[in-house]
């Protein structure tokens, strides 16, 4: 099972200003990964330069710091269980100044 993950990079790479990066993430069957697990996988195996809120996180939905826009809705990355296949579109929180990729302030 493969999940397609679309992330618009910020600042955008010069060669493709308007295109989001697309990552194909293989999901173990019935693993129930969260969006944060998916991003951790991408950062470790596919692109270590990808930035999302990862420092000082609890991973249990307590600190509420890993909020992002997931498929158009504001949610916590660590609490959103991704579908086993299909598409995941990740964007920074609305109304914030984007610092880098998915990280806003």
């Amino acid at each position: 099972m493969t999940l397609t993950v679309k992330i618009r990079r910020s600042p955008p790479p010069e060669d493709r200003q308007d295109q989001p990066d697309i990552f194909q993430v293989p999901l173990p069957p019935a693993a129930k990964w969260t969006a944060l697990d998916v991003l951790n996988y991408i950062q470790l195996h596919l692109d270590g330069s990808l930035s999302y809120y990862r420092h000082s996180v609890c991973n249990r939905g307590v600190c509420a710091r890993c909020a992002a826009t997931i498929n158009g809705q504001v949610r916590l990355l660590c609490q959103w269980v991704v579908p086993p296949h299909g598409e995941l579109v990740l964007e920074p929180l609305p109304g914030r100044t984007v610092v880098r990729d998915l990280v806003g302030r």
């Binding site: 950062q43 270590g48 330069s49 930035s51 420092h55 610092v99 880098r100 990729d101």
Partner: peptide
């Protein structure tokens, strides 16, 4: 070795 340069929110550096 970091996969990207730049000090702004560079988690690999942290």
């Amino acid at each position: 070795t970091l996969r990207s340069g730049g000090r702004v929110y560079n988690y690999e550096w942290i």
